[in-house]
Design a protein around this nucleic acid. Sequence first.
DNA 1: TCTGAAGTTCTCAGTGCCAA
DNA 2: TTGGCACTGAGAACTTCAGA
Length: 777
Amino acid sequence: MQLNKDQLKPFQLRAAADLTEMLATYPAAPFKKQFNQDTGEPLPFLCRLKAITGSGKTPMLASSISQLSDCIVLWTTNRGAVISQTKANLSSGGKYSKLLPEEVNIYNLSEMTSLDWEEVCNAKTGLTIILSTVALFNRDGDVLNVHKNRGETSHWEMLAGDSVNGRLRDLYIVYDEAHGGTKAQFNRLKDLHPRAFILASASELPEDLGELLPGRTPDDKSAALNLQTVVVPTQEVAEAGLLKTRLFLVDCNTTRLDALSEANKKWLEITDKLKAFNEQPVICCIVNSTTAGLEIWDYLTQNLSVNPSRIAVHLSNVDKALLEANPNAPWSQLIDTYKAKKSPEALRNEGYTHLIWNLSLREGWDEPWAYVAYLDGEAKSLTDISQKIGRFLRQPNALPFDDSDLNSAYFYFNVPDEDFATVVRNTQNELSNEGYEIIAIKGSSTRPKLSREAPTKSIVNLPKVSESFGEDLQVLDDILLSNIPLFAEDNLKASGRVSTRVIDIRRNKEDGSLRKDEKRKDNAEISVWEYVIGRLGAIDSRIARKNGTCFTSFVKEDKRMKQKMQAGSPAMTILNNSISTIVKQLNNEFRLEFEPDQVFTIKPFNLISPDLFTDDENKRERYKVRTYNNALHESYNGMNNFEIRLADCLDNQDLPWCRNPSKVGYGIPIAQIGEGTSTFYPDFLYWSNPKTLWAIDPKGTHLINDAIRTKLLGISDVHDLPLKVKIAFVVEGEYELGIDNRPQLRSQNGYSVIFKYNTGLKAKNYQTLDNLVKDLK
DNA sequence: TCTGAAGTTCTCAGTGCCAA
DNA sequence: TTGGCACTGAGAACTTCAGA
């Protein structure tokens, strides 16, 4: 069906007219012209159409630009599907073609010939629309066709009007789904010197466009943006029948199969109801990976009896993922619609009712007949869930049914209980277009951004100490396996829950009367391996991190590790109690080793906010840059009072020393796992002679922890270390060592140093800090 | 000194262009 | 049609700060 202006909804006509008026008024008040602060060049006008997906942004934009006489419109977005859909809709015979003037010329940028470019740029009258994905122009150099030099100029330069054959008409840039834009894209688009940017989005403005808005403060810019935005209230869109009116959010704290089964049951219900209208609903299963998609296909076909010919698997690299998939599933029946290059928009018309898709669903696709969505994977990004909801709100034929169930969308997912309320709140925020958007201005934060480097006076290398669990990893596997039993089936189970909350889209309020909680027999499950490794990794990343563990790759194949247990089950409680034993036993195998092939080179010192100008005296002192004679760097700042005094004393010794920054400085691994910290960064390094390095920590915080104290003081025991590394804790007050070598404060007088002496520890007291440093030999 | 916000870096999967 | 390449955003992990 082709839409003409008379068929547009009142809110669509109003929005299009407001946008046109804004563009016609500029650069007269209240829309002031902006100029680049450095070059003085005029900046393009920025205006925006803010409306929810499904409100008909394309017809509103088409209707508005049809009023712009004699111009070129570059219509862009970051997804190819949006561009092809828009081209089809705007071109002759398309859904929105009647909204444009009859003589309009529409091009796909990728298909434009040199002759087309010449014609478009040489024309002085008429409306030309060029459609392009971001990928067609957003790349450095001249790799892309549009940037290639053709004789004297490139097509891009022609469009910018910068060269021979440059355009003769005004240029407007329409950016659909503008929140996906990046700084690089907008910089390139700014090079085209457009008269205006027209951004269409339901979300917030990209921060990088802040400079196009008048005003100096975020508040000024926010006010300007509000003035330059045409807002379409979601409620009006819903009331006009374009959107579904109720949104069921169902949090399934249950197994994946149960959650999928709940979603599929809802799809069957809707299928029954739509039979009277001779229509089929669609259920969309959104997954994070191709492998997960195949597992969903397996469940749908084998457990829920869905006909494989109705399932479109729209995922990349299916063939590769099949190599590792369940060998018993009938994969020959799988239909790979991605490989077949089918357009997602066409899938329902081809009879597919179940779509398995990935994150690319986020933009560019909204199927009115998609009533049910299942979001796979626990603890997904909450914002992600809310953003996807927008793709399912469009009402079929823009006409409400008598049965309210057919005017609703249903979402099934699994998030932790405490996050469910956030999902509901985020969704309401996404649905709302009201409110005052805060525009961040780069560099305006209260944090002083300025910093500079103090280079090293000479190159100084230090020996590296690495962490090791030893050569024999089998010992580590044995520790793990000996602490994990084979559980009885009952011990692996715990009951689950399905909670439903419903949002009334017209009022953007939760309908409390429809809230419900139901118990389920089973709960989400996790393998013993994933659970134990997750817990151990949280205790110390040296045991397990994302890219690997200290164990062999075989251990996870053990049947004890492959057991699936449910959240809150007795098995989980038992494993929880075993974690500390595993850590203790792993600790016995952990050691430090000298790395003869590697050195650490002292880096330049980063002076943060040097000589910060502020009324706060403490801050002024902290950021004051102090120069030193014997330090490896010319100057330092960022020290507290005690550190400043210690630095002065070190500099008085006529021996090399340096300030050692946390995290990026010289780190000494802590030979004890599970202590909450894995590397010790002393505040100062001091060479009392060429063979002895003192790692001095004036804070003494590590003294609190017995294990770290003992192990740290043992650092010099690393075999073959070419430099003797001694660790000294320097503290204010008189300390002595008590039971188990625990430092105890005797009086507030003087200063103490605690260090390793022969096989034990020693605490020594001095009247002055200078004497203490002199005695470090 | 602790905490948490904000920024940075890396990895991963998806996307689109181009040349063979 | 396929493979290589570059770009993209999201998330995780890590780093860098400011303020309490």
